[in-house]
Write a protein that binds this DNA or RNA. Structure first.
Lengths: 112, 112
DNA sequence: TAAATGTTTCAATTATTATTGAAACATGGA
DNA sequence: TCCATGTTTCAATAATAATTGAAACATTTA
């Protein structure tokens, strides 16, 4: 994942409305939610919601598909995983991590 | 972790300069880096660097300690872990996750 | 105490981002 | 085709953030 994409993805999530939208979609799971339903759940006005969904979509954090007159949005879990991985990459210079920075530090996640 | 803190933390990382600073600190590990050294590594002017370090610090992403006339900054791994955890919380409504959203979905990380 | 080094603060400028309401577009059903 | 519903686009306004250089502050050494 490129630095530029990471900044875009983080910026997409770093905003009240968009974080609320994304969390709603994460909780909804693969089935996703229609735009109007997201508006209901979050209280964001339609035009503002559309703006934020476009931001999230452009950042690759959500995907959309037309279903009748609804547009269904779903969280993009692949991008989220790539993002989480990037942040912990090359931790401690690639050396075995000291306790202070695990589990964030390891590329392979450990059971909690 | 509260939503507000998460937005602040994400916003702190969602910027070229600050992401570069944070990554440098993650790679430096627990030993951290002096402000001047970060300036050298990233090419960010001192006053601008100080601004961004304050942002990161306020977001809880980095900590600092005076050491002689140097100020040593270190990545705050605890906050980072909390942040990563938050994003995957309550995934798929708390139900067992379908393959599409693991490993992001599970609270306990699986070995890759 | 004076000078040198390392870091932070300040003010001004420039650029980017969020929100709103109205209008436009698209789809499905009468 | 006409109407209702769901979503997006547009333009204007308001708010927030980034960068710069100069000055101030703090710490160490001579």
């Amino acid at each position: 994942m490129e630095t530029k994409s990471v900044v875009t993805a983080l910026a997409a999530l770093a905003q009240d409305s968009r974080l609320a939208i994304f969390r709603a979609l994460v909780q909804a799971g693969p089935a996703g939610l229609a735009a109007g339903r997201i508006s209901e759940l979050t209280g964001i006005a339609p035009s503002s919601l559309s703006f934020h969904l476009k931001e999230l979509s452009h950042a690759g954090m959500v995907s959309s598909q037309q279903a009748g007159r609804f547009v269904i949005y779903t969280a993009n879990f692949a991008t989220m995983n790539a993002l989480l991985g990037f942040l912990t990459e090359n931790c401690c210079g690639g050396n075995p991590c000291s306790p202070v920075c695990s589990p964030a530090c390891s590329t392979e996640k450990e059971p909690s």
